[in-house]
Design a protein around this nucleic acid. Sequence first.
DNA 1: ACCCTACAGTTCTAAAAACGAACTGTCAAA
DNA 2: TTTGACAGTTCGTTTTTAGAACTGTAGGGT
Lengths: 176, 176
Amino acid sequence: MRWDELEEEPCSMARTIGVIGDRWTLLILRECFLRTRRFEGFQSALGITRHLLAERLKKLVRQGVLRRIPYQESPKRHEYILTQKGLDLYPIMMAIVHWGDTHMVDERGRPLLHQHRKCGKNFDPVMICSECGEPLSAKEVHTHPGPGARSTPAINAPEKPKAPEKPKAKARRSAA
Amino acid sequence: MRWDELEEEPCSMARTIGVIGDRWTLLILRECFLRTRRFEGFQSALGITRHLLAERLKKLVRQGVLRRIPYQESPKRHEYILTQKGLDLYPIMMAIVHWGDTHMVDERGRPLLHQHRKCGKNFDPVMICSECGEPLSAKEVHTHPGPGARSTPAINAPEKPKAPEKPKAKARRSAA
DNA sequence: ACCCTACAGTTCTAAAAACGAACTGTCAAA
DNA sequence: TTTGACAGTTCGTTTTTAGAACTGTAGGGT
């Protein structure tokens, strides 16, 4: 399965992974939320090779996650700014940070705390149901095909035979 | 920056990326939430090479995201089950799916819908502040160093000089 | 007993991606 | 005129991944 195949699968998760599912892209996006905007800024913050950085930035711009905006004319220079599509990645970033805070910290505690400006307190992000407001967990969610479905690959898909589970070997699920 | 270096950085995001920050791992985890448990199940669902699959499963077990449990003795066979640490990845998965639903669907609409068993409705996941219950967005969050901080790499870190931004070239941020 | 299949890997070679370091080009300031 | 900031590009080397075949245990059928 190649990278560009991923983005055509009928699974929102696969498609998203096609955009942000690699280490450097995720780290570049972290820097974006940290307000890094320029090539040298990303490069020195991350230690990524200039070659890869250029490539990843181009890809993110192509995908509409970043916008490339000129900030001077003399030698033409550009900044990379998060678009709304990019800003919408925030819940993913926060969910990733929160998992790390919960499961990957050492004795010293979490590297940083998040304060909500509105209420002034340090908080954790909590994911809730948009309809009833209750916190979500995997077991409470039932997934079923939507209008864009072809087969049914996604989190918590409906019943899947448990015991049999014997695909004819080599047969790949038509669209996973 | 090597993979195992990532996991030692004082940044919960970098550490988490060290665990789940690659395409195949994320896809394998999708399958786990889909209730796939066995080697052949993952392989045929994803089309991943057997070599890589074996390696990724080992890594996830080592990191405590999956547990390897025998399900028969005859020829020894094992299943891979999400631990609590693994189940806790659910908000990340849902955030990823939701972003895809919002920004990556084609004319046909989203591949699938999520129904909350408690309230019976199709929902979207919403991320809120654990303290005041208000929805979160990047701009409303201020981040500051916690007990485990060394430098300050993370989403929305406190002020960073905007104009100067001139690291001595080649100097990598002590720990990004 | 012999062959076929299911299952869970391991091994091997070729192809693709990432690394590292140097190089290009524009402009400003010293 | 030389140096340095900045934003890349180029190129040779090393690491990963892909793809396909092979290993080994065991059950079932004939």
